[in-house]
Computed example of a mutant assay.
Amino acid sequence: MSALRVGTRGSALALAQTTALAARFAGEVEIVEITTQGDVDRAPLAQIGGTGVFTSALREALLADEVDVIVHSMKDLPTAPHPGIVLAAVAKREDARDALCARDGLGFDDLPEGAKVGTGSPRRAAQLRRVRPDLDVVDIRGNVETRLARAQGPDADLDAVVLALAGLTRLGRTDAVTEVLSLGRFPTAPAQGALAVETRDGDAASIRAVAKADHAVTRACADAERLVLAGLEAGCSAPIAASAQVDDGMLFLTATVYALDGSKHLTASHAYTLDGQSGPELSEAAMDVAGRAVRELVDAGAMELDAA
């Protein structure tokens, strides 16, 4: 039997997380590196169109039978289904929180007035401006090490950068973290910290090979978060946060939409009581809480707010 060809971006983070996840797939695997638009275009995500810039090339390779499965950071995955492709597995989520990586070991509240903080995420930028309007938020791109060097390298030109804790953990770079940011002040992007595995629709062998990597609770929580994005007709780079969790027999979801300048935000929180944790019930719970959150946010003016 030939090895399962696993497609992934070629960044250090993508390779690290894909290699670790592929160890859970059945049989032998071969990692195949694929270059995406987001890897070569350094323009701001909002400018090049955040949706699909890290995933389209992977999906093209999958449909062309150049690989058997593809692995994404799930927060980069467009919410709309792609013809001929199915979501075969969602791996158990790492800590979804954001992390501050600052010079001189500074925490967020210790940053001086006017400090330069780098991020490539409109959601993080809006949150930073909301909590600390005095900060100079700088748009940055690049891999994890490039971003860290902007704040902690010998030629640093920023006071801090904000990155996903999950990525730093997978790269073994939690030493760079000077504060893990609380979900209360900095709720995270939909599906942040989760990995998604896609296969061709009908490819039973590949679907079976990755089945053990699927984590039902993570899938339901990520689905609920991403259904908020879909319901608000927003892309994966929109200034929207959504956090879901299953606890004490309930699925909880909190979603927040921000004005780009951080001046305003709207939040909705909902819960669904579970009888168990079967896949169908978790899926129903995800759709229910997301639907209610979207209706509340839309009624409150969210469709105008995220473009402010």
Rank of each mutant, 00 (worst) to 15 (best):
A3P: 06
A293F: 09
D157P: 01
E304N: 13
G50C: 11
H270Q: 14
V86F: 01
V90A: 02
K212C: 03
A205Q: 05
S269F: 06
A125S: 07
D65F: 12
M287W: 08
V117I: 15
L106C: 02
L195D: 02
D41I: 00
D275I: 09
T267S: 15
M287E: 09
I207N: 06
Q152C: 05
F25T: 01
A46P: 03
A211M: 07
V228R: 07
P187K: 12
P44L: 02
V180M: 01
G202I: 11
E60A: 13
A205N: 09
R141G: 15
G167S: 05
E113I: 12
M74V: 08
E30C: 03
T256G: 01
L128C: 08
A286V: 05
V29H: 11
T254V: 15
L45H: 01
L58Q: 04
R185S: 11
A209Y: 07
R185G: 11
G172L: 04
A14H: 07
L62P: 04
A205E: 15
V197L: 08
G142I: 08
G167T: 00
H270E: 13
A285D: 04
A290N: 06
S283I: 10
L266A: 08
P133F: 07
D175Y: 12
C101D: 12
Q47R: 05
D155I: 00
E145F: 02
R150D: 03
A204G: 08
D76F: 09
P78Y: 09
D155W: 00
A126T: 06
A196K: 00
D98V: 03
V131F: 07
A43I: 01
A211Y: 12
Q245I: 00
A61L: 06
M287K: 14
R97E: 05
V228W: 03
V6W: 09
L111P: 10
L148W: 06
V90F: 00
V161Q: 07
K75P: 01
P44M: 02
L171K: 14
V161R: 04
E33W: 03
G27H: 07
V246I: 13
L168G: 03
F25M: 11
D39S: 02
E28H: 05
R24D: 06
C221N: 14
Q152V: 10
C236D: 14
A300L: 04
I31Q: 03
A151N: 10
P239K: 10
A302M: 07
L13A: 13
L63M: 13
V131Y: 03
V289W: 09
A204Y: 05
A88K: 14
A191W: 02
Q17L: 13
A151T: 08
K264M: 14
F252N: 03
R42A: 12
V197H: 11
R185L: 12
D76S: 04
R132Y: 12
H215E: 15
C101H: 11
D299P: 01
Q37L: 09
